[in-house]
């Protein structure tokens, strides 16, 4: 669908954006037709927007000679996208955009049979940092205030977030375990509702990306009380991390990156690794990271496999502790 849409529009609007392919490196593999980039969210979802931005940047930076078309395979968490990639076994012109959900989803969903180890990881690109935010007029100025209040009135405070296997809830679970405090997690499918419920005072806290929080803080609607990262965030130099506030919990990463279907030839993997090695050095990518306040999470090869393995182990533990049904 997307392919010809592009063609039509390119022709009608006369805006020919396709790269000129001046990166004909010595690599044995070179794509000969547009690349299909599979994401697990519908148009407008986090992964969809990320993939479209990457596709656009790669064209601008002329890192690939072919266009990249985003294909939305939403459903069952990430199950539909992942099994679509398995169906595309050996396909040299297909890649997928993974997130942490691709690791946790098969752990809790019986029907999601494809594991990330069944696919071919290529690179991890970013780590999305997060902060713990409350409403601007809330009495909680530090994480300690919030935890103390939650201990005084167990299950009275509320946190808004997405799916229960998502990072938002896992963050709550690890903090609850470390501190003994208890509060309630309320799921909202859309990001808009999560923020609206915090600003409307229906919930007391939420986990949010720093870029998103920035605007609400500037407008005086929100306050950030902890950085959910290893080090303080450059954009919030005055906000201490959880560890600095005496809560020693593992940082739950939200990783984004690229993988390929199972069984692709070695030279295709080498090709993509080369492409992304050049890409992450480009000025456009650096600017994108800064704009979105993402952490550069470039990782490939055995290190990436190790990351996935460790993440799966950690997530399984966290989910089990929380009493979620872990199926594999």
């Amino acid at each position: 669908m997307k392919r010809s849409w592009y063609c039509l529009l390119l022709i009608t609007s006369g805006l020919v954006l396709s790269g000129t392919g001046d990166f004909a490196h010595a690599a044995a593999f070179e794509p000969t037709k547009p690349i299909e980039a599979v994401v697990h969210t519908g148009p407008g979802g986090g992964s969809d927007i990320f993939a479209r931005a990457i596709a656009e940047l790669m064209q601008k930076e002329k890192t690939i000679s072919q266009r990249m078309q985003v294909v939305n395979k939403s459903g069952g968490g990430s199950a539909v996208a992942m099994s679509y990639l398995v169906e595309k076994k050996g396909d040299t012109h297909t890649i997928g955009f993974f997130t942490g959900v691709w690791v946790t989803n098969p752990l809790t969903t019986a029907a999601a049979k494809v594991m990330i180890s069944d696919l071919t990881p290529i690179v991890r690109l970013v780590l999305e940092p997060a902060v713990f935010a409350v409403k601007a007029d809330s009495p909680y100025k530090t994480m300690k205030d919030f935890i103390d209040a939650a201990k005084r009135n167990p299950n009275q405070l509320k946190q808004s977030g997405g799916s229960i296997t998502g990072r938002d809830n896992l963050v709550r679970l690890v903090i609850e375990k470390a501190t003994g405090a208890k509060w309630v997690f309320v799921s909202f499918p859309s990001g808009g509702e999560r923020i609206a419920n915090l600003l409307g005072g229906h919930v007391d806290a939420m986990v949010i990306e720093p870029q998103e929080a920035g605007e609400h803080i500037k407008a005086g609607n929100m306050r950030v009380i902890a950085a959910l990262t290893d080090k303080r965030l450059p954009s919030f130099p005055n906000v201490p991390t959880l560890k600095e506030q005496g809560i020693d919990v593992p940082v739950i990463p939200q990783a984004r990156g690229i993988l390929a279907p199972p069984g692709v030839p070695k030279e295709v993997i080498l090709y993509w690794e080369g492409v992304f090695e050049r890409f992450v050095k480009s000025a456009g990518w650096k600017q994108y990271l800064e704009q979105n306040q993402f952490e550069d999470g470039y990782l490939k090869g055995p290190a990436l496999n190790k990351f996935f393995d460790e993440l799966a182990v950690k997530m399984r533990e966290v989910l089990k502790e929380a009493g979620a049904k872990v199926v594999r």
Partner: peptide
Amino acid sequence: FVLALGLS
């Protein structure tokens, strides 16, 4: 649908 609108 296929040529003009580019549905697959």
